[in-house]
C-alpha cells in the first residue's frame, strides 16, 4: 500500500515532466506554406470556419463585415447564426470606425446596384 502511494506520486511527477516537455516543444512556428499562400492571396480567412459555406462573416469579416443573423429574429438582441454558435471565434464587425455612418452613405444616394457573386 505504501509503495503504491509512492508509486502514485512518482507517476504524477513523471506525467508532469511529460507535460512540461510537451509545452517546451516548439509550437509557434508558422509554416512557410501558410505564409506563401496568404501572401499570394492578400490574406484570406480569419475565423473558425473552414469553407465559407454559409457565413462569409465568420470565415473572414474582411470579405463580408456583417452577419445578417446578428439582428434576427429579434432586433437589438444578438441571435447568432449556426456558424457562430459552433465556433470558438466570434469576430467583431469591422466597420465601426472605418467608414462614415451607414445612414450618411445612404443619404447621398450614390449606391450602385452591382451583382453579388458570393451567393452563387
Amino acid at each position: 500500500m505504501m509503495s503504491r502511494a509512492h508509486g502514485f506520486l512518482i507517476a504524477l511527477a513523471v506525467l508532469w515532466a511529460a507535460v512540461v516537455a510537451g509545452l517546451a516543444l516548439p509550437q509557434n512556428e508558422i509554416r512557410s506554406e501558410a505564409r506563401y499562400l496568404q501572401r499570394q492571396w492578400g490574406g484570406l480567412g480569419l475565423g473558425a470556419h473552414a469553407a465559407a459555406g454559409s457565413c462569409w462573416f465568420v470565415f473572414d469579416p474582411r470579405i463580408e463585415p456583417y452577419c445578417p443573423n446578428f439582428e434576427r429574429p429579434f432586433s437589438a438582441l444578438p441571435n447568432f447564426c449556426p456558424r457562430h454558435s459552433t465556433t470558438v471565434s466570434r469576430l467583431p464587425v469591422l466597420t465601426a470606425d472605418a467608414r462614415e455612418p451607414r445612414s450618411q452613405v445612404l443619404g447621398k444616394g450614390a449606391i450602385e446596384t452591382l451583382p453579388q457573386p458570393r451567393s452563387e
Binding site: 496568404q38 492578400g42 463580408e64 451607414r102
Partner: peptide, 19 residues
C-alpha cells in the same frame, strides 16, 4: 499570419452596409 501577410488596405464598395 493572414493579417500580416495580407494587404495593407482592402477596398470595396458599400451597398447598404453590405459589400
Amino acid at each position: 499570419v493572414s493579417i500580416e501577410s495580407g494587404a495593407d488596405i482592402y477596398v470595396t464598395f458599400d451597398r447598404g452596409g453590405l459589400d
